[in-house]
Design a protein around this nucleic acid. Structure first.
Lengths: 139, 139
DNA sequence: TCAGTTTTCTGGAATCATTCAAGATTACGG
DNA sequence: CCGTAATCTTGAATGATTCCAGAAAACTGA
């Protein structure tokens, strides 16, 4: 993701363009699925000191602006990735914690077509597979 | 869920039958999707004082025994329900937080069949729909 | 370009769910 | 009914995240 695109994305969302924000988006674009503290570490490596609070503010702002997408995998931390609108899903290794993307195949995602009549106006479906990755399967 | 069934479930899992455990299972059976603190409150209402730690121990023990199922909805708390093995999914209202069950339609648990070739040995699939419930849709 | 306004960032403390640790109790097989 | 291991209690700790108040910086319009 180029700097120009990042700037446009922020402006388009009505957000001010600041170094911490641009850098955060860049980090998430390069390394998806990082947690907040890892993102903070990487942003600081590039910018110098940035407060933890700023990172959380930024992640929350970008997430509600639709620029980032939050993935809750372990129930206590959030992982972030670009919200590219491709509606992909995730698969987590229950042994090592590795997280990978799974593209959203049309056919393989009947769960994206929830039953009618629930009264809910469904916005998104999050699908999370849990299993053991190749590396962790060998004894 | 009757007391007798609860006792059998505990024994079958190799767990000792204690009042806090039996009561916890009863509470979760009657009121699915409660969080730990709400379960603690309800258990205390019925038994008198029970430590918070006991509740967490119990919830963890019952979950890993396959008696309860943990549902992570908001990324920071867990909700609990009986693990009836029916592989149902959940739908959450993004406005009021209401959580409801959705049966795994399509019968054949389609979500359990992720794409091959990932190298992962898939164990389970969690599907979470997010949307706005009927009550929250009206202006 | 510059001042005003509003958003964003800093620094420090607080919160909340959950877990750790050590000792007291209790269930259950023998 | 006893002994032992599992379970519960009490109290403190952890870790991710948020609240707060003030300082700094980014956009707006002149």
């Amino acid at each position: 993701m180029e700097s120009k695109q990042i700037t446009e994305a922020l402006r388009g969302a009505g957000l001010r363009v600041t170094a911490p924000r641009v850098t955060t988006i860049g980090v998430v674009a390069e390394q998806p699925h990082l947690q907040a503290d890892a993102i903070a570490a990487e942003v600081r490596k590039r910018l110098g000191s940035v407060s933890t609070q700023a990172i959380y503010d930024i992640l929350n702002a970008l997430t509600s602006a639709g620029i980032l997408r939050r993935a809750a995998v372990d129930g206590r931390t959030s992982r972030f990735e670009l919200d590219s609108g491709d509606n992909h899903h995730h698969i987590v290794c229950t042994v090592c914690g590795r997280l990978e993307d799974i593209p959203c195949f049309e056919q393989a995602t009947p769960c994206m077509h929830p039953p009618k009549g629930t009264g809910f106006d469904i916005k998104i479906a999050e699908v999370l597979f849990r299993g053991v990755c190749a590396d962790c399967q060998t004894p």
